[in-house]
Write a protein that binds this DNA or RNA. Structure first.
Length: 405
RNA sequence: GGGGAGGUACCCGAGUGGCCAAAGGGGACAGACUGUAAAUCUGUUGGCGUAGCCUUCGGAGGUUCGAAUCCUCCUCUCCCCA
């Protein structure tokens, strides 16, 4: 039923930063094989944003590895922890979400997670299940397990404290909640990003305190965003979402710095390490194309990946327009054209949010129609059917003049 | 509870009566160069059909010809003492 311990370890350890403690993990795997009992592997996700990107997908893929090895994937949707907001790695208090936001996010999460995990075989738990039953006295008992000094050892808190950035009391509760989840689901292993290590270790302490065998903590690295220096995150806008269109995923991948490729290959694709190395030996541009395709096919398929790559070439190498661009429908005048102030055209169709921004784009030479640049923001233009508007380097739209109007 | 320091644009942060739509940096956007690389360089970055006008400096009032700047109250944060 189970693969050998060595084979399992090889798969488990790919792209993993830290295992606390590895000897325990080996023991657990042995015991699991001997008793033919799958291990319970926990991953907690807080539905704080509606999207999953290839950075926060890394631990989900790790969970998938375990699932494929025959272990039990226990996915915790942290609908209660999301209300607290994980203080890990942030330098200010996270905004508290409303129940409605959380519910909506949880819904989209599950859709997206279906791209990675076998949902049928996944044990999905919401932590409101146990937290909403808690009495205040239970909360007191839980919080008594942690000291302020230990909390303040954490880099994120001590930094905030020493630079005078407020820390709210409820943020201290977060790791305890996460640890409590581990007790409730009786996890043998917990996966998390490296910024989660503190909470994962708290889980061990709490389990030990509850006379359980402490979970093995397994951390995955954080992936830098496409800007190349900050952690990939939704709020920084430097992410590649797994739900995004293949061409977007591919295009964004092409924009990452060459230095980041190795890390992206290792963490965001399923390619074998040897294959990755030989690919990286080639021309960086070719390697990046392989990377882009690999990421797309992970969430879609090879066909979509190939198409995305072709389209990319068509736009940026051959300088043609993409084959599938949004349309702008406009009514025609008696000559079959549409007269419009160029600034209004941009603002009305979402290429600029204000007239000022539209003027700026125009003045700076970022706007062209049928390859003709327009640099005068006062310009009145006469649009004809089938014209192509280009804003910046990669935003296009086709003008469609409807005869009816 | 007492004392002190603060809240400035997307973020950080300068500005202590007019020269302030507010320095500088970051980010973002656009252009040049490229491999749509990255790095670099240049420009823009409150709104308005824009040589002008309108609305901004935690909130509400007030002083003044004139307020981000002075006063009052409210609110939030940090530090020290208890």
């Amino acid at each position: 039923m189970f693969k050998s311990i060595e084979e399992q370890l090889k798969i488990i350890k790919r792209g993993v930063l830290e295992i606390v403690r590895e000897e325990e993990l080996v023991e657990k795997l042995k015991k699991s094989t001997n008793t033919q009992t799958p291990l319970r592997v926990k991953l907690g996700l807080d539905p704080t944003a509606p999207d999953i990107h290839i950075g926060n997908a890394i631990p989900i893929h790790k969970l998938r590895n375990f699932q494929e090895l025959g272990h039990t994937a226990v996915l915790i949707i942290g609908d209660y922890t999301a209300m607290v907001g994980d203080p890990s790695g942030v330098n200010k208090t996270r905004p508290q979400l409303t129940q409605e936001d959380i519910d909506n996010n949880a819904k989209t999460y599950l859709d997206q997670i279906g791209k990675i995990l076998d949902i049928e075989k996944t044990e999905i738990r919401y932590n409101s299940e146990w937290f909403k039953e808690m009495k205040f006295t239970d909360v007191i008992t839980l919080t008594s397990k942690m000291t302020v000094a230990r909390m303040m050892e954490r880099d994120d808190f001590s930094k905030r404290y020493s630079s005078g950035v407020p820390i709210s009391l409820h943020e201290f509760i977060y790791p305890l909640m996460q640890g409590y989840d581990s007790i409730m689901v009786k996890s043998d292993i917990e996966i998390g990003g490296t910024d989660q290590i503190f909470s994962l270790l708290v889980g061990r302490d709490l389990q030990r305190d509850a006379k359980m065998e402490p979970q093995t903590a397994l951390t995955t690295p954080l992936l830098e965003g496409i800007d190349g220096n900050k952690k990939m995150s939704k709020s920084l806008g430097n992410y590649i979402g797994i739900y995004e269109e293949p061409k977007e995923v591919f295009g964004k991948t092409m924009r990452i710095s060459d230095d980041l490729m190795r890390k992206y290959f290792e963490l965001a694709t399923d390619m074998a390490m040897e294959e990755i190395e030989s690919t990286l030996d080639g021309h960086p541009r070719e390697a990046k194309i392989v990377l882009g395709k690999a990421i797309v096919s992970r969430y879609y398929d090879n066909e979509a990946a190939g198409k995305a790559a072709e389209e990319f070439d068509r736009i940026f190498k051959e300088h043609k327009i993409p084959d599938d661009i949004p349309q702008i429908a406009l009514p025609s005048n008696e000559n079959g054209n549409h007269e419009i102030w160029i600034v209004k055209l941009l603002v009305d169709h979402g290429f600029a949010s204000t007239n000022g921004e539209a003027r700026r784009l125009i003045t700076q030479g970022g706007v062209s129609i049928d390859n003709k640049k327009y640099t005068d923001p006062a310009q009145e233009i006469s649009l004809q059917d089938d014209m192509v508007l280009k804003v910046g380097k990669r935003r296009f739209a086709k003008i469609v003049i409807s005869q009816s109007g």
